[in-house]
Nucleic acid binder design. Sequence first.
DNA 1: TACTATAATTGTACCGGTACAATTAATCAA
DNA 2: TTGATTAATTGTACCGGTACAATTATAGTA
Lengths: 236, 236
Amino acid sequence: MLKYQQVAAEIEQYINQHDLKQGDKLPVLEQLMSQYAVSKSTITKALELLERKGVIFQLRGSGIFVRRHNRPGYMSLFSTQGFKSNLGDRVLTSDVLDVSVTKPDATVAQNLGIDVTDDVYRVERVRFVDGEVFCYEESYYVKAIVPYLNREIVADSIFDYVQGALGVTIGFSDMYMQVGRLTETEAGYLGLQMEDPTLRIETIFHLSNGKPFDYSRITYHYEHSQFVVQANGPYM
Amino acid sequence: MLKYQQVAAEIEQYINQHDLKQGDKLPVLEQLMSQYAVSKSTITKALELLERKGVIFQLRGSGIFVRRHNRPGYMSLFSTQGFKSNLGDRVLTSDVLDVSVTKPDATVAQNLGIDVTDDVYRVERVRFVDGEVFCYEESYYVKAIVPYLNREIVADSIFDYVQGALGVTIGFSDMYMQVGRLTETEAGYLGLQMEDPTLRIETIFHLSNGKPFDYSRITYHYEHSQFVVQANGPYM
DNA sequence: TACTATAATTGTACCGGTACAATTAATCAA
DNA sequence: TTGATTAATTGTACCGGTACAATTATAGTA
């Protein structure tokens, strides 16, 4: 683990353990430098990470402050998108409906940037948060990159497996969101009525070298899915 | 404008003008350094900005590459959230229904961190993209921070006015999203039926000093609102 | 040809430093 | 007490440098 990531993790841990509130002030840069025994630029980088994550905000001439949002029940949109296995204290479980090797249809192939003759893993799951139906997910993995999957891996975190055992690194993702109505089969999985409202998110996950390796379609239960996004100011 | 922002803007402009595609390679760091006559760290900062924005991705040992998503019609979720006035080539217009000074109710006051006796501006708009109904918006501005608003300002961009004329800087925002059904009045504004599905986003905008100054509730037309979020890999 | 080992390329981590702008605290004047 | 001026605090911009890890290209070997 990189030094600045380590420092960031420790600072975040400190904030959580001491249950700091929005606006609480952290030690000044120079003190953090000596406290974690790293250079200024490393502390700066750690803090920048935490700022992006929505954990702190920095104010020039003033200090470093804790940032919090105060809506329990809202999950971070990104934490549900494979990037973080951490959902706070919530328990995430899965019903695995399908794990199989198939050929992609034209849409899937195009989103993954592969040919319809290439192999993909198809994974179908219903996911639960604290026992309540959360979403229905259908996702496709490029077999050339993810050569093996089974029900145990899929029941747990696919991303941890991919990054751990396969040693590939995930780089970035494009998420496409839209609102619509449930189909009959989707409604069945989610325990809702056909035509009920739903949020659909398609995501294309890329490796750090830019190659797509996972295309996933998630249909959310509209009553159990509330998301928070902590954004940072105008980039430029 | 800061040097690294300037450089970032120029690089992005270069990419757009030359219509570079996903995966196209940019000049190497050292060349960019001399080309823009800035130090390594400034170039690095500029590139990091573009990476966060989803314009490029960097691969150590390899180079700097253009990142693109290929779904026209999808708007960046953040560009619709006040941070950027730029919506590409789309035309954004507004019907202003109300601009008035009132007292906030308990919910609004709590979200803005003020008292129910404090004054707020209430702004109510229906917004259009290329002439099509896009969303219905109800937002509240802390009058102590935004002392004056009128219909002209509101019809245009409130954020440009606030940052320009008032000289305050916007820091960060918390967005809360959920899916639901339209009420009768909402349906009327959006030209839809009652009980139709909708995406609701509440956003609390903070100044860079952490003080909330705008609480806004947006109800989107589900057929005309498709969003893209370009996310970057695991922060840590 | 195909595979392996080596070298060159290239971005990132980390260090330390100066200058500066925004904020806040202290000082002084009315 | 209030308001303005000055000074101290504090994070950020920008500079330049070394070391290194990941990738790609090259050379060598079977």
